[in-house]
Amino acid sequence: MVLNKVRPIKAVEWNDQDEDSFKALSKTEMDALRKVKPKSFTSINGWRVVASQVVLTLIIASFSYFFSESAERVVYTYSALVGGLIGFLPSALFLVRLEAAKKNVKSSPGGYLAAVVSGEFLKILATILLFIGFALKQPDLKWIPLLVTYLATLKCYLLAWFWR
């Protein structure tokens, strides 16, 4: 059995990188860049996303009202409103959790990250509980308008990126 001699591979060090790959900017350079490209530095307001979810819910509910049969018009409209509620209420709870974390004077990056994770957990839990609660308490709901409205409210996050 012949053993090959293993040669160590030279590791690339941080200092060996090309100088053009990144550049640290000063405060004045960052301010100048913000003036040139202001849209690149704007953030999305979460409450606008929730407001757009509410508006979209009302639009879909009104379509459900006008384009359904007169016998089941109320049920279709109610189902669309419930789907929208399941979409925007957990989002609003998540934003309330983040706002509470921002107002905490002892906040740190780790504390804010914990608020994001716990807020997302609350959002998922609220969504599951709302789906189960409405399915058990309101058996006459129509699932197609409910799910269409729910999925449409979820897509408001993508629309917010395009509107930015």
Rank of each mutant, 00 (worst) to 15 (best):
Leu81Gln: 04
Glu19Ser: 11
Ser62Leu: 14
Lys103Gln: 09
Ser108His: 02
Thr77Gly: 05
Gly119Pro: 07
Lys137Glu: 15
Leu158Phe: 14
Asn15Val: 10
Ser107His: 05
Thr57Leu: 08
Arg34Asp: 13
Val74Gln: 05
Cys156Trp: 03
Val117Asn: 01
Val74Pro: 00
Gly119Val: 08
Ile124Tyr: 09
Val75Tyr: 11
Leu158Thr: 05
Ile44Asn: 10
Leu95Ser: 00
Thr77His: 01
Asp31Asn: 09
Tyr65Thr: 08
Thr77Trp: 01
Leu113Gly: 01
Leu25Val: 13
Ala80Lys: 02
Ala114Ile: 00
Leu154Thr: 09
Lys106Asn: 09
Leu25Arg: 05
Glu19His: 10
Asn4Thr: 08
Ser70Cys: 03
Asn4Arg: 01
Lys142Met: 02
Arg73Cys: 04
Ser40Met: 11
Ala80Ser: 11
Asn15Trp: 09
Ile132Cys: 04
Leu33Gly: 10
Gly83Asp: 07
Thr42Asn: 15
Leu125Pro: 00
Phe88Tyr: 15
Lys106Ile: 00
Glu69Val: 09
Tyr76Gly: 01
Val12Glu: 02
Ala135Val: 12
Tyr76His: 06
Pro139Asp: 07
Ala80Thr: 05
Trp163Asn: 07
Ile124Asp: 02
Met1Trp: 06
Lys35Asn: 15
Ser52Ala: 11
Ala115Trp: 04
Pro139Leu: 03
Lys23Pro: 02
Leu136Cys: 10
Val96Trp: 12
Ser40Lys: 05
Ser91Ile: 02
Tyr112Met: 06
Ser21Lys: 06
Leu89Glu: 13
Lys155Asp: 09
Ser52Cys: 04
